[in-house]
């Protein structure tokens, strides 16, 4: 797709290009889409894990952890003219891909990612305008900067628009 910018695992992209579409694929990871509708600046972060405080080393990717991803995305968007008070969020992903017959918590990394991000957004006073999280399947996420619309595609399921 023309103008589509791929956002890799643990990475973030911010743009004010109104032709751009930020895109990623998430399973248990979460795609955070932040948008300033007035400045038409958008940012997408591909979050892999809920909390950087448990990581004693290995920093380097701007969006690996939910807490760092949120702050880094807000910071990068501010540099392009976005204002924190105008931001709205849309989130997708956080699936529990692997099912098993034991503890519910065993492979619940996706659930923890989504919960952590919700709390962080609430703490920052950023409204979640739409979300498609949980379940057991992967999702393609495409964030249109011109409209702020986020399209979520799933294998064998109808596309959802946030």
């Amino acid at each position: 797709m023309d103008g589509e910018i791929s956002v890799g695992m643990g990475e973030l992209e911010v743009t004010d290009d109104k032709e751009a579409v930020l895109a990623t694929f998430v399973g248990s990871c979460v795609a955070l889409c932040l948008y300033d509708p007035q400045a038409k600046v958008g940012g997408m972060a591909h979050i892999m894990l809920p909390d950087s405080s448990k990581d004693a080393s290995g920093r380097g990717n701007a969006a690996k952890y939910a807490d760092e991803a949120l702050e880094n995305t807000i910071g990068a968007m501010a540099e392009k003219g976005a204002q924190a008070g105008r931001l709205v969020a849309k989130i997708a992903g956080g699936a529990k891909i692997f099912a098993h017959e034991g503890s519910e918590d065993m492979f619940a990394i996706g659930t923890r990612n989504a919960e952590s991000l919700r709390k962080l957004l609430q703490k920052r006073g950023i409204r979640i305008a739409g979300e498609d999280v949980g379940q057991t399947y992967g999702r393609w996420v495409r964030f249109n900067i011109s409209s702020g619309q986020v399209k979520v595609g799933k294998r064998g399921r109808e596309e959802k628009v946030l």
């Binding site: 695992m9 694929f25 998430v26 399973g27 248990s28 990871c29 892999m48 894990l49 699936a95 891909i97 692997f98 492979f107 990394i109 057991t136 399947y137 992967g138 294998r155």
Partner: peptide
Amino acid sequence: ESLGAILGDPIA
């Protein structure tokens, strides 16, 4: 699931 979704957990 798709391989993309399946690989997410171990990679993360």
